[in-house]
Design a protein around this nucleic acid. Structure first.
Lengths: 204, 204
DNA sequence: CTTCGTAGGCGTATGCCGTACGCCTACTAG
DNA sequence: CTAGTAGGCGTACGGCATACGCCTACGAAG
C-alpha cells in the first residue's frame, strides 16, 4: 500500500465546521474548507466525492458527538428519556448554524441511529413494544428535531418574541397575548415543558 | 402613477413553485424562474430584491394555502386540533421539495401565524391559558414540523425502512426490530398516533 | 537499492450561479 | 402633448462546484 492518507474524515469535518462556526453556513464552500486545511481546492476531492458528502461529514461530526450512553440505569424511564432528549438538543445547540444541514442529512447519521437505539432500550424496558414503540420513537424524534429548529430558527425566542408582540392585534389577538406570556418562558422550560407533555401522553 | 405592475407576487411564487415541482429544489434559480415567466432574468429583480425574497414568496405561497378556518365548532377540542394539524401536514405534503425552504423561512409566514392563531383559539376554549398555552402551542408546532420533516426527508418511511432493517444487528438490534414493526405502520397512523400522544399529555 | 504502481496533490478550464449596472421603452398623470 | 417613472433587457463580473490531466511522494516487491 503506497502512501497513507494524510487526512481523516474527522479532520475534514472539523475544518468545515470551523469555517461554518466562523463565517456562518453561507461561508461554507469547497474553497474555504480547502484553505482552512492549507491545501488546494481540488485536493479536497481526494477525500470527498462532492460538496454533499462534505456536508454529510459535518452533520455526522456534529450529530455523532451526542452522548448515547444509557443514562443512570436506576432512574425512572421518563427521566432517562428526558436526559437523552436534552443531550441531543445540547449537541445540536453547540452549532446552531448547522441546523439546516441536519435537516437534509440527518438520515445518514449514525449518531442519531445510536441515540434512537438507546431511547428504544429505555422504552422497551418501560414496557413499550411493537407498533406502539414505533409511534413513540417517531413522536419523540419528531418533537425533538422540531423543537430544536423552533429554538434556533424560529421567532418566539429572543427578538422574535417582541416582533411578534407587535402584530396587528385585530387579526392576531391570541398570538400577541401568547408572545407576551412567552417572555417569561425561557428556552429550557419551553423544551422540557413540551417534552413533559409528550411523556405524559406516553404514560397514559 | 405610470405603468401598473404586470406581475403579482402570487404569480411569481407560482412560477417558482412550478419550477421546483418540475425540476426539484436544486432546479430553482433566478434564470429558471424568469424563463418560466417568459421574461429576462433581470426582469425578475423588478419584483424581488434577491433570491432570498423569492424563496420567501414560495414558502408563503405554500404555507399561506393552509386552511385556517376554525373547524367544526361543535366538535371536541382534541378533534379540532387534530384537524388543524392534519391540514398543515397536508398543505406541506403537497410540495415536499419545498420542505427545506420552509425550515429557513417559516418564521416569515403569515400562513403559519394564522394557523397558530386558530390553534390558540381552540386551546383557549379548552381552558389552556397563560404560560401553559405558550408551552402547548410550541409543543404542537414543534411536533408537527418535526413530523413533517421525518415523513418527507427521513428514512423509516418507504425505502428507508428496509435499508434500516439491514443495519448491523449486533449494534442496532432494537432499531432493526423497530424498522420491521414499522412496515405495518403507514405515514398517517404514525403522524396521528404521535399527535394523539401529545394531546393525551395536554389532557392530563 | 532499485523500480514501479498507487494515491496525494495542484492548476487550469468550464459552465453554472446571483446580481450590479446602464440602456431603451411603454405607459400614465398633468 | 409632454414629462417622468417603472418595466424590462443585455452585458458583465466574480464566485461557485467540479471535470480533467499533470507531476510528485511514497511504500512494497524484486
Amino acid at each position: 500500500m503506497p502512501r497513507p492518507r494524510s487526512l481523516t474524515p474527522e479532520q475534514l469535518a472539523s475544518a468545515a465546521l470551523a469555517v461554518i462556526d466562523r463565517d456562518g453556513l453561507a461561508g461554507l464552500s469547497m474553497r474555504a474548507v480547502a484553505k482552512e486545511l492549507g491545501m488546494s481546492t481540488m485536493g479536497l476531492y481526494r477525500y470527498v466525492a462532492d460538496r454533499d458528502e462534505l456536508e454529510r461529514l459535518v452533520v455526522e461530526r456534529v450529530l455523532g458527538a451526542v452522548d448515547t450512553e444509557p443514562p443512570e440505569p436506576g432512574a425512572p424511564w421518563r427521566e432517562r428519556v428526558t436526559v437523552l432528549a436534552g443531550r441531543l438538543r445540547a449537541t445540536v445547540g453547540a452549532h446552531p448554524e448547522v441546523v439546516p444541514l441536519t435537516v437534509t442529512h440527518r438520515h445518514h447519521s449514525l449518531g442519531v441511529l445510536r441515540w434512537s437505539e438507546t431511547v428504544l432500550a429505555v422504552l422497551t424496558e418501560a414496557g413499550v413494544e411493537g407498533e406502539r414503540r414505533v409511534v413513540v420513537l417517531r413522536a419523540l424524534l419528531g418533537y425533538v428535531i422540531g423543537a430544536i429548529q423552533l429554538e434556533h430558527l424560529g421567532p418566539l425566542s429572543g427578538p422574535g418574541t417582541t416582533a411578534l408582540a407587535a402584530l396587528p392585534a385585530a387579526e392576531f389577538p391570541l398570538m400577541a397575548a401568547t408572545a407576551r406570556d412567552a417572555r417569561t418562558v425561557d428556552a429550557d422550560r419551553e423544551f422540557l415543558g413540551g417534552l413533559a407533555l409528550l411523556l405524559d401522553g406516553i404514560t397514559v
